[in-house]
Amino acid sequence: MDEKYNISQSEFELIEQYLNDNLDAATTQQVLEQIEKNPIFKTKVDTVKTIIAGIESQALKNELDVFHEDLEQKSRSTTTKSLNNKPWWRPLAVAAVIIIAAGSYFWLGENATDKLYNAYYTVDPGLPTNMGGNTMYEFNKAMVSYKQGKYTEAISGWKDLAKQKQDNDTLNYFLGSAFLASDSIENAIKYLEKTTEQSGSTFREEALYYLGLAHLKNGNKTLAIKALKQSQLPQVKEIIEQLD
């Protein structure tokens, strides 16, 4: 690409309209003459053409990966019906957690914090994804990876987004959740703490809960209790009772 030529906004838009056949006959003629007579202008037209083709090609390439994930997901779901992304999952996951917790009460002994963590921890089921092609595209793509248990891929996708949106609680919460699921506890704590710092976040209760569990996993009872006590989730009480 030729960097010598700066393309102004009006020039860029003119070339773009020309390439899209959106100019009237007279203006098209003028552009064609310019291309013929002015080699610099011709280079600019080629540059804009390449840029537009590059954007389109890469956007499609990214989309193909999503098609492929879907294809693989479908072939998996013919053998197992384990994947479901409906929102009503979330309360079910919570219910499952409580049932497991009731059973765990009897065998608490050594390494109590670790055992409690194992009894109560279940990965957040994630959010439903809509691949209709919108501004959430990159986020959803990483969510697909997360739901498939490809946490490293999900983390890499969300981290890119988080560079622009450091205070986005949804991103921070799922980054924390993905790190926790991949046993990267320090990172999980970092992102979950960020989420809990936002008082209006819809993920605050869950973030506090998982933050507490992350501290449990680290063997830090005091910090675990501190986080758990701030969460309103029903299962929190039971954990605290078992810790006291």
Partner: peptide, 24 residues
């Protein structure tokens, strides 16, 4: 073209999303 394609994925999410909506 390859250079532009690689550069597109290095753009911030806001730009990537805007250009995607417009051109793709």
């Amino acid at each position: 073209l390859q250079d532009v394609m690689q550069a597109f994925n290095k753009l911030g999410e806001a730009c990537r999303s805007l250009l995607r909506m417009f051109y793709f």
